[in-house]
């Protein structure tokens, strides 16, 4: 006799509710799909949120705050973690000319992120606390948290690509350094001639 799904019956190896209740603490306490916190998905209850306003007061400092062009207005409240500035800020502000549905919006933002990071690293060398790849990557945890034992003999799939991480992190720096050396050599060569 063929088995499910080639016949109408459900699979036969599901334990009974009694057996499950005996084995699993709380089995079935949320059995009724209509008695779960997210049912129904939308519940109109503006009075139940704690808000005592119809529209919130507007936060100060709104001038120049970037926003998605898919918004009809600047939201009344917003984060102020890291305002746009410098070259990366200009790149990001340019990205906000594109709607969220456009790949250009997100890819330009990613470019802004990388320029921001490169600029911050370069600037850090003019401070008393330059970036330290040893402490900032937390790589010392490899020794303190059993880096080898955590990987060897574990059949972990992520080991297949973790070797790429140092290249992702260090690759741009190696490329930038090589580029700088080539440019310097070209300048010196030209000066000699």
């Amino acid at each position: 006799m063929p088995s499910t799904p080639y016949i109408a019956n459900k699979p036969k190896d599901i334990p009974t509710p009694e057996a499950l209740r005996a084995r699993i603490p709380g089995w079935g306490v949320d059995l009724d799909p209509k008695d779960r916190p997210s049912y129904p998905r939308e519940v109109f209850d503006p009075a139940g949120t704690g808000a005592h306003w119809d529209y919130p007061d507007e936060q100060q400092g709104r001038e120049g705050r970037e926003r998605s062009i898919e918004h009809g207005q600047l939201t009344p409240v917003f984060g102020t973690s890291a305002p746009l500035k410098g070259v990366s800020g200009s790149i990001r502000r340019y990205a906000y000319r594109y709607g969220e549905g456009r790949a250009a919006h997100w890819l330009i933002l990613l470019l802004g992120d990388r320029v921001d990071a490169w600029g911050a690293h370069a600037k850090s060398f003019a401070t008393l606390r330059p970036d330290n790849p040893i402490t900032e990557t937390g790589v010392l945890a490899e020794g303190r948290r059993h880096g080898i034992a955590s990987r060897v003999g574990k059949r972990r799939v992520d080991v297949n690509h973790q070797w790429l991480d140092p290249i992702v992190v260090g690759g741009p720096w190696v490329a930038a350094t090589a580029g700088a050396v080539l440019v310097a050599r070209a300048i010196v060569r030209r000066a000699r001639h």
Partner: peptide, 27 residues
């Protein structure tokens, strides 16, 4: 979730989709 409690979405319990707190994206 950062959420206002009073926008179209919050009023319907969709607190994670609040429209009054994220100027950078609507999605």
């Amino acid at each position: 979730n950062v959420y206002c409690g009073s926008c179209y979405y919050c009023a319907r319990g969709l607190y994670s989709n609040c429209h009054n707190v994220n100027p950078n994206a609507t999605a």
